[in-house]
């Protein structure tokens, strides 16, 4: 996955505006080169992962047999999906997935907003703005997320009347936003300064330069690491179970407490997280491909 990320990353150096002449046949070759690796990478990743899981499962089966653990996979499906008079109904685990996805979706939007604002503040010429952004970054990056979550839920929330869900979303957004802002800032400063100067020399202001010239180019550089951050967000969201939010992790805990199906349920929970994160990468992969088309015509 790392290899694939690097390949994707370096693959875009051709997009930085250097002269590049490609013959008539270059087009299709290029298109193929661009589309195939992403699909291939995912397949390779999945196969490798499946192999690893099988090996682990065999090992586990061997050891648990020694422990005398009684596998009861047949009891698991009902926690995912039940079929009754009213057709299919989501079981607690799938409902938990829904809660996690909702938290992630809202936090993702909020954290991106915070991240962009922070990055622009840090790049602004305002000393106060830079200071505010700097303090925010240092506070977030130098304390544990769990402590931030508790601080907001137990200290701030009662003061301002937030419920658990709001506290969870705000903690996650502030946390991921700090890291994402560094990614965005990095993407912006990595562009040649000549792009800014060309804008200024044309009479464009800072805002127009950002909107029409800088950000559209930075997005292509920012997106891959930002996806990584989004995946962290999915994973970190499990922590909200500690403030009594019934997300996927919390549902898993409850079921395990009631049924003692510890191995089976945690396998399934981990698998569901995996499905979420892999889908997220795949979705952004698609998005990226659509974005990349432009440069290349």
């Amino acid at each position: 996955m790392i290899l694939a990320a690097i390949r994707r990353w370096t693959g875009r150096t051709m997009l930085t505006g250097r002269t590049e002449r490609v013959g008539r046949t270059g087009r299709t070759e290029k298109a193929r080169r661009r589309y195939k690796p992403i699909a291939a990478d995912i397949v390779v990743d999945i196969v490798a992962f499946a192999g690893l899981v099988t090996a682990l499962a065999l090992l586990l089966a061997h050891n648990t047999a020694a422990l005398g653990y009684r596998w009861q996979w047949h009891r698991v499906p009902r926690y995912l999906l039940t079929f009754g008079d009213e057709g299919f109904q989501a079981g607690p685990l799938l409902i938990g997935v829904g809660v996690t996805l909702r938290i992630v979706a809202v936090s993702l939007l909020l954290s991106l907003t915070i991240a962009l604002a922070t990055a622009l503040l840090r790049l602004s010429s305002s000393a106060v703005g830079q200071w505010i952004a700097g303090v925010y970054l240092e506070c977030i990056r130098n304390t544990p997320l769990l402590v931030q979550l508790f601080f907001i839920y137990f200290v701030i929330a009662p003061l301002v009347g937030w419920d658990g869900w709001t506290s969870a979303v705000i903690s996650l957004s502030l946390f991921e936003g700090a890291y994402a802002s560094e990614i965005i800032r990095g993407g912006i400063v990595s562009l040649p300064y000549g792009q800014w100067e060309a804008c200024y020399s044309l009479g464009l202001g800072r805002r127009d330069a950002l909107r029409f010239v800088i950000l559209p180019q930075a997005v292509r550089r920012i997106l891959p690491p930002l996806v990584g951050q989004g995946i962290s967000l999915v994973k970190d969201s499990a922590l909200v179970s500690t403030i009594a939010i019934y997300d996927l992790t919390m549902r898993g805990q409850v079921i395990v407490a009631q049924t003692f199906l510890a191995f089976e349920i945690w396998f399934v929970v981990a698998g569901l997280y995996l499905v979420m994160t892999v889908s997220l990468s795949a979705f952004v992969g698609l998005l990226r491909r659509r974005l990349a088309v432009n440069y290349d015509r």
């Binding site: 997009l15 505006g17 040649p192 060309a198 180019q217 292509r220 432009n294």
Partner: peptide
């Protein structure tokens, strides 16, 4: 400019 500085996107 020496480096053109066209907007590549």
């Amino acid at each position: 400019f020496q480096q053109f500085n066209l907007f590549p996107h």
